[in-house]
Design a protein around this nucleic acid. Structure first.
Lengths: 144, 144
DNA sequence: CAATAATGGACATTACAGGTCTATAATAGT
DNA sequence: ACTATTATAGACCTGTAATGTCCATTATTG
């Protein structure tokens, strides 16, 4: 049965963004340094970073001494932002009979419950940002 | 990237359970009737029902005039129960570096956020049961 | 014994996650 | 201008999971 779990790419993206948020502003971090410090395959991480750039979460500079930096401040990048870029914006649940039988008719009750559950999930992810991680990070021993 | 969405099987299972909950107690509903009334391929639905039986959500009787019935009352079957049977009990998130580098060490902060989000989701699914659907069903026109 | 019905296994198909490699374009330093 | 550096986009490969079908077996009722 389908694995209901965020992809590795999401994990990669989140860690990369925290890493970028920790570097001096205005300093580009190259894919080599990024992948080495996080332990992620370089060629694959570059795909993920490309996607983050296309969706406006990071800026990229090509050429010597180029690299990546955050496109906006860490408190403006929520977990939900990152997840939606990587995983897409599909809903958590789709009734097997949607589209076919009811074009935008009132949802069935099962569907309503699932949408309610999704909203709880999204709300929490919306409320937590990269900055949240940075703040907590100062307190404990620096895990990530 | 991996689709973060419940499988069709989960949708099948939820609809089937609501259907069983609506039938007279003590009456077995056969796979033919079940699949016909829901519009689900019979051979595939039987797989799903088998799984529900193995995990104790329904009882099955083989042989003539056999079929399925709920193993316990609808208010004791939560959405979470069903989902965990079908999708498994994996966590919504796994850091790409778990196991390998930190055997049961304190989670990284990203992990903590994701676990928090998961808990909100699970809580909502735990609070909504098959009976919840039956109750609401009486009010509106019977959608599902 | 015969008809009915669930079970379990094998199997086919499709899609996608994860990953690699390469050619191309852009940039900084010499 | 040349060269080294770096991101980008594309093609390609592999394994695995979701969906679904089919069949042989087992169990139950009449």
């Amino acid at each position: 049965m389908r694995i209901i779990q965020f992809s590795k790419s999401t994990s990669y993206a989140l860690h990369a963004l925290v890493r970028l948020a920790r570097s001096e502003p205005g300093v580009n971090v190259g894919i080599k340094e990024l992948s080495a410090s996080l332990g992620i395959p370089e060629s694959y991480l570059s795909k993920v970073m490309s996607k983050l750039r296309q969706d406006g979460l990071v800026r990229a500079v090509t050429g010597a001494s180029g690299g990546y930096e955050l496109a906006r401040s860490p408190e403006k990048i929520s977990f939900l932002d990152v997840i939606q870029v990587i995983e897409g914006r599909q809903h958590l649940y789709e009734c097997f009979h949607t589209d076919a039988q009811r074009p935008s008719k009132p949802q069935c009750l099962i569907h309503q419950v699932m949408d309610g559950a999704e909203e709880r999930l999204l709300q929490y992810l919306r409320e937590h940002t990269i900055q949240w991680v940075l703040d907590r990070r100062k307190e404990h021993e620096p895990i990530v």
